[in-house]
Design a protein around this nucleic acid. Structure first.
Lengths: 212, 212
DNA sequence: GTCTATAAGGAGATAGAC
DNA sequence: GTCTATCTCCTTATAGAC
């Protein structure tokens, strides 16, 4: 396999060894200190390369930041959506909703990198609107769409507005992660994850039949 | 009324005219540029005072930032929770949920200051955990508690876990604001607010009676 | 309390050798 | 392509006059 073919296999790999190092260093710094709080000196040091090399690869600080966030969004997409699509073919709504909820929470609640990434994208969404949109496109939209598709085909009798219901489910889970972990509220307003999941499962399991 | 009594009436007013100016300048700068992206020079200029005056009042940049965010959290609390508590005494669940949803969305979706404030608190929640907790304590917790109290007393027959259901309702609305406005996703995944509200109203209106 | 002026250090970005 | 050394500007914070 030659170099040209390799670049078509994945947009994440084979970008050069130095570039990989720079991404790794930039990841550490931007996730911890934010965009304005990160210096290119520390990125270079953390990556183990000189500052000039960083500029040679990514042009300027903004270019590096944008490339990093887009790369991370793609990576998260593969983890959260692609690798779990197969599981969605179960027919029992209760089982499917429980599985989706567990997938989202398992990949969020204890993953400090993910929590820092969400903080970063939301925090910079006013100054980098395109990055916020990339995040929505790669992580918010697919989750809602996949669940909507499922609810539409499997629960069309009981759920009047599947897309709105998908947003209820995803929104509840996202807000739970935001409140408990990202905003560090788990000691202030504790809530067991299973109570959230059970309540969501109930919503689709015995939902109101339209009155007959 | 003398000065001592005045300070007990509200923690928001009567902190000195210069301090008020500084808060106003700091508000503009921090909400737009974030913590690290804001310079004390621009805060002073925006406030119309000298930089030394800012330092005399608030010690350092961090002190000013913390004071500003705490002040804003209190202000938002009064707008979002206190001023709407009376409306909660309606007995119809459908009416109450619709009212809460409209209160939250009316005070969020079009309020650029509020959206920027949420961006700021989430974005800085890793570096200023106490501020994140203040936000949860003043804005997240009261909303959930008030709604939980209502659902517990008024819907105890149909809702098995009122606190979890309160989080479903609040979480759905918060996530809607986050996706559509804060992360600027309204063109990417459009959704009418009334579809969200109607779906939430249905949840409490004809919720599953436990099987008899 | 408030101002002007300044200290001391860090920031983004580049020139030029290799 | 990568490095070292450097340029220039901006940052937080304070000293000292009033």
């Amino acid at each position: 396999m030659d170099a040209v073919e390799q670049t078509e296999i994945s947009q994440l790999d084979n970008i050069g060894e130095k570039a990989e190092q720079i991404f790794e260093g930039a990841l550490q710094e931007f996730l911890v200190h934010g965009y304005a709080g990160t210096s290119m000196d520390r990125v270079a040091a953390s990556a183990g390369v000189s500052k000039a090399t960083v500029y040679n690869h990514f042009g300027d600080k903004e270019g590096l930041f944008i490339a990093l966030v887009k790369r991370l969004a793609q990576k998260k997409y593969q983890i959260m959506v692609e690798s779990h699509k197969a599981e969605l073919m179960e027919t029992e709504p209760a089982v499917v909703v429980r599985q989706i909820a567990n997938t989202i929470l398992d990949n969020s609640l204890d993953d400090q990198e993910h929590l820092a990434f969400v903080r970063l994208v939301i925090g910079e969404s006013g100054r980098f609107p395109e990055l916020a949109k990339t995040f929505v496109h790669h992580l918010g939209k697919p989750g809602i769409e996949v669940l909507t598709e499922y609810l539409t085909t499997q629960c069309y009798i009981t759920i009047l507005d599947p897309e709105a219901m998908a947003r209820v489910i995803i929104g509840t889970l996202a807000h739970y992660v935001l409140m408990q972990e990202i905003l560090q509220g788990k000691e202030i307003i504790p809530m067991e994850r299973d109570r959230i999941i059970n309540t969501l499962v109930d919503l689709v399991d015995h939902h109101p039949k339209p009155e007959i």
